[in-house]
Simulated assay, not measured.
Amino acid sequence: MPIYNKISAGFAMGTAEPITSGVEDVVYIFNQDDVAFTYDVSNPLIVTGLTAVSSAKVYKFQGTNNSFNSVSKLVKTQVGPRYTEEIDFNIAGLSVAIKDQLMAMGYGRVCAVLINNYKSSDSAIELFGAVNGLILANAERSAADETIEGGYKLKLTNPDKMREPYPPRAVSIAPTSGPATYASTVTALEALTH
Rank of each mutant, 00 (worst) to 15 (best):
I125S: 06
T48N: 10
I98M: 05
I7G: 05
D33Q: 14
N132I: 02
M105Y: 15
T185P: 11
I29W: 00
S55H: 12
E85T: 06
T20K: 13
R82Y: 08
P159L: 07
T187E: 14
K161R: 09
M13P: 05
V26C: 03
A174W: 07
N65V: 09
S121A: 12
T15S: 13
L156N: 00
P167W: 13
N5E: 11
L134W: 00
S184P: 12
A97Y: 08
V75Y: 06
A139I: 05
V96W: 04
V41Q: 08
L102P: 03
T176D: 08
Y182L: 13
A137F: 11
I125E: 00
N5G: 04
N90E: 14
T38K: 15
T187N: 14
Y166E: 09
Y39C: 04
N116V: 03
A12D: 10
N90P: 03
I29R: 00
I29E: 00
I135Q: 01
L154I: 11
R169S: 02
A144W: 03
T185K: 11
S184N: 02
R109A: 07
M1K: 03
V35I: 15
G108K: 11
Y4C: 05
N43Y: 07
Y83I: 12
I125R: 05
I148V: 12
D34K: 13
A137I: 01
I98L: 10
H194N: 13
P168L: 09
L45V: 07
E24Y: 05
P81E: 15
Q32L: 04
L136M: 04
A9S: 13
G106N: 12
D33R: 12
E85K: 10
Y83H: 15
K57H: 11
T84F: 14
F11H: 10
Y152I: 10
F61N: 00
L154W: 02
T147N: 11
L192M: 08
A137C: 05
L192P: 02
K76Y: 09
K119S: 08
G133H: 00
M162G: 03
F61V: 04
Q78W: 13
V171P: 01
L114T: 12
S42D: 13
N66R: 09
S67F: 02
D40L: 07
Y118G: 04
S123L: 06
A191W: 03
G106T: 08
K76G: 09
I7S: 14
S120F: 12
A36G: 05
Q62Y: 10
T187Q: 15
G129D: 01
T193Y: 00
E146W: 09
A36W: 08
D145Y: 02
A139R: 01
A180P: 05
K161G: 08
E85W: 02
S120N: 13
L94S: 13
T64G: 06
D100P: 04
